[in-house]
Computed example of a mutant assay.
Amino acid sequence: MTNLIYSAIASLDGYIADEQGRFDWSMPDEEVHAFINDLQRQIGTYLFGRRMYEVMTAWEGLSNDAGLPAVEHDFATMWDTTDKVVYSRTLETASSARTRIERNFAPDEVRRMKDETDRDLAVGGSELAAEALRAGLVDECHLFLSPIALGCGKRFLADGIRIELELLDERRFGNGVVYLRYGVGKSDR
């Protein structure tokens, strides 16, 4: 069985976007981006909520851009060749290749996907991740803490979710970012 991984870049105080929805403060430098790329190579399918999907579609087709920095070209190539499932009640059509739209998040379907694939799955977007955490589907959380405190905004973890975590790995980067990899234990959903 494969893992479902929730990964995000967050502020020191646990926000993935500020109160205006901006996340420009979280853009990884080349060292962090290359590390993220190496982690993403194991992903066979991305699970996204609509808003996260719309942010990520900026990568669509960039693998054809010869002028892109190597680390970004690497990620764009992975984006283009990875399957995507978007959970949205409002999105009518996908704007990226290898993408299907599902109207509702179905935990049993995600369990089936985990059982039937040999590559990990990644969940993107804090609201969808909260549903997956509540359903007991998330196996690991990968958190990149940025050296900034925002004070408010969109949280990495939703209110009302209590989970026990086991630190599996850590790494410090030259720009002050810290990577924390946690195994997800039992939760109080």
Rank of each mutant, 00 (worst) to 15 (best):
Ala130Cys: 04
Gly160Glu: 03
Gly151Pro: 13
Glu170Arg: 11
Trp79Arg: 09
Ile163Cys: 14
Lys84Phe: 14
Leu157Ser: 09
Thr117Tyr: 02
Phe156Gly: 04
Arg134Cys: 04
Val178Tyr: 01
Thr82His: 08
Ile101Lys: 05
Leu128Cys: 01
Lys114Ile: 03
Phe173Pro: 00
Trp79Gln: 10
Val178Asn: 00
Asp169Val: 09
Asp169Pro: 08
Gly125Ser: 03
Thr82Trp: 06
Lys154Arg: 15
Asn104Trp: 14
Leu165Lys: 09
Glu164Cys: 09
Leu168Phe: 10
Leu157Gly: 05
Thr90Ala: 08
Asp159Ile: 09
Arg155Ile: 11
Asp83Pro: 05
Thr117Pro: 04
Tyr179Arg: 04
Ala149Met: 15
Tyr87Glu: 10
Glu140Tyr: 04
Ile161Ser: 05
Ala76Ser: 09
Phe105Ala: 06
Glu109Asp: 11
Ala132Leu: 01
Tyr87His: 10
Glu102Met: 11
Arg155Cys: 12
Glu127Ala: 05
Glu166Ala: 05
Arg89Val: 06
Leu180Trp: 05
Cys152Glu: 15
Glu127Val: 03
Arg119Asp: 02
Ala76Val: 07
Asn104Met: 10
Ala129Asn: 04
Ile163Val: 14
Asp80Trp: 15
Asp139Glu: 10
Phe173Met: 03
Thr117Met: 03
Arg162Trp: 15
Leu168Asn: 06
Arg134Gln: 07
Ser126Ala: 09
Leu167Trp: 14
Ile101Tyr: 12
Asp169Lys: 08
Arg155Ser: 15
Ile161Asp: 10
Ala135Val: 03
Ile148Val: 13
Leu128Glu: 02
Phe173Arg: 00
Thr117Leu: 03
Asn175Cys: 02
Ala122Lys: 04
Glu127Ile: 02
Leu150His: 12
Ala135Trp: 00
Gly153Leu: 15
Asn104Gln: 13
Ala122Glu: 07
Ser146Asp: 10
Ile148Asn: 08
Asp108Asn: 07
Leu143Asp: 06
Arg155Val: 11
Glu102Phe: 11
Asp169Trp: 14
Arg103Ala: 05
Asp108Met: 09
Thr117Asn: 06
Leu91Glu: 13
Asp159Pro: 07
Ile161Ala: 03
Arg103Asp: 08
Leu91Val: 11
Met113Ile: 04
Asn175Leu: 02
Glu109Asn: 07
Asp159Gln: 12
Met113Asp: 05
Val178Lys: 01
Arg172Ala: 09
Ser126Asn: 06
Asp108Trp: 11
Asp115Ser: 07
Leu165Phe: 08
Lys114Asn: 06
Thr90Ser: 13
Ala76Trp: 04
Ala130Gly: 02
Met78Leu: 14
Ser88Pro: 02
Arg172Glu: 11
Arg172Ser: 09
Asn175Gln: 02
Ile148His: 10
Trp79Tyr: 15
Met78Ala: 09
Val138Phe: 08
Val85Ala: 10
Asp83Arg: 12
His142Tyr: 14
Ala129Lys: 03
Ser88Asp: 11
Ile163Met: 14
Leu143Pro: 06
Arg103Leu: 08
Glu102Arg: 12
Arg119Phe: 05
Glu131Ile: 00
